[in-house]
Design a protein around this nucleic acid. Sequence first.
DNA 1: ATTTGTGAACCAATTCACAGCG
DNA 2: CGCTGTGAATTGGTTCACAAAT
Lengths: 205, 205
Amino acid sequence: MKNKVPIPSLERLCSIYHILEQLEKNGTEKVSSAQLGKELCVNAYSVRKDISYFGEIGNCRAGYEVSRLKEHLKVNLGFDIARTICVVGLGRLGCAILDYGLLPESDFSIVAGFDSNINKLETIHTDIPLYPAHEIVTVVKRKKIELGVMAVPGDAAAETARRLSDGGVRGIVNFSPAVIKSQNNVFIRNMDLVGEFRILSVLTN
Amino acid sequence: MKNKVPIPSLERLCSIYHILEQLEKNGTEKVSSAQLGKELCVNAYSVRKDISYFGEIGNCRAGYEVSRLKEHLKVNLGFDIARTICVVGLGRLGCAILDYGLLPESDFSIVAGFDSNINKLETIHTDIPLYPAHEIVTVVKRKKIELGVMAVPGDAAAETARRLSDGGVRGIVNFSPAVIKSQNNVFIRNMDLVGEFRILSVLTN
DNA sequence: ATTTGTGAACCAATTCACAGCG
DNA sequence: CGCTGTGAATTGGTTCACAAAT
């Protein structure tokens, strides 16, 4: 059933989930598809269709109950299952992520950091265990790490992706500018800043 | 003519441009749509269609000439025009971007940084001029800044986006987890790490 | 003999219109 | 009556098949 939901819908549903978290914090109890659509800059039809991929949940007169819908999405999107993450490349960006990632509110936990420079590992102050990059495969296997973040230079990207895949991660967030070839059904999400600038540059021509 | 190119194609073309830069560095002179497709994990048809949105450029026997195609895309994607960028939010991530963004190889230049904490501005060592966040509108207008990066906490995101829009930027890269409502035809690109984890989490269920 | 460029066919996603329900 | 849920229509993008070029 999960396979039938289009990826753009899944992306919107993740955003909807975030909005619901905010609404719940504010104490808002009810929300309509029109309101959600306004927040997301999409129309209400899309919101309703996206939500209904996971079955009926709304109330026809009063819209959606915020906390109920949030829990509903949480279960169906699998956010109730904790995920383990590792970060490869501990430059400024990688270290910022190590810190950032410890936020307790999400069900993600960073359980390992890697860098090819062994001397650098000594100088980083964190509670997260750090390892040299050549141990990626064994550590990822041993700890059953599910997701990886790559904050390495472009020329190290292909090798890093291969190691993460060989270790058995199921998804990679790639901050390097390199285009990564997916292997072993690993999902890749690219977060390339210069790439994003370029796309914006084209869109605003 | 630009409006007719689908956004997914533009995204792929940006990746193709990056691959061409790499190929040129290696001294590779020719490349076929099949090779490019392999690098991008898409089929050759897509590559050819994407490229042909900007007219004929390939050679029917020998494929594409790397440097010629690169220049062709550069002009058509508008990468030959330099762009000015500002960074809002000078925490660890924002500062990492300030440094990172000075790479001379791209035609983007970071020309201003902003933070709401005036004391923090004193402590940051950079050649880029820094300003308090309440001056965003005036500085963006005066320097005609075209693109903005938001590395602010979620609760400051809406206000920051409004200021950047009022100043006249055409596009925003949003690193905050908040969902940003676009105003004044400003294009938004979201780079939310937890959001990406969530999407990967769903895809790998 | 290969490899590009492109109209046509196909498939996926969004938008719509309206039935159903409180 | 207002709002959800959903089949139907429409739009948009990808894949394909083949003509054109060298």
